[in-house]
Amino acid sequence: MAAPLIVEQPAAELDTVTEVLTAVFAEVKAAVLAERPVVVLVEDGDLLGQGDVVDASVAAGLLGLVRAFALEGAKPGWRVNAVSHRGEDDAAASRDAAEWLAGSDLSGQLIRVGTAHLGKVWP
């Protein structure tokens, strides 16, 4: 199996959102065309909007990116997934989840590590 690409949610300011998301797009595109599995790690609190508006936009945008790649990659077999977690508290579990996803045949999945999302909206 080709080495997976693990992408962590990058920090961004309003003026760098375009650049940051475009860089992730380019990185993920290069990976899938090289048949590498991809897992994008995002902050679960940002997915729920429980923080800064720019961070939330980036996190949700990345989840959309994952879904777009997975949908388009269904036929060629691209594997692009996401893991959301809550900072360092869930770091080990999120790494495990990312490794498992990268080694699986799944695509377009979101694994939410921890329990803080329970009772909240599904992003």
Binding site: F25, D46, G49, A56, S57, A60, G64, E72
Partner: peptide
């Protein structure tokens, strides 16, 4: 925003707007 073929840029932007909506609503 839930995913669409041939629109990785559009999907990302419209999904990002969902995140913006949630965060701004809380803020």
């Amino acid at each position: 925003s839930l995913g669409n073929f041939g629109q990785a840029n559009y999907v990302t932007s419209k999904s990002g707007l969902v995140g913006f909506t949630r965060a701004l609503a809380l803020n």
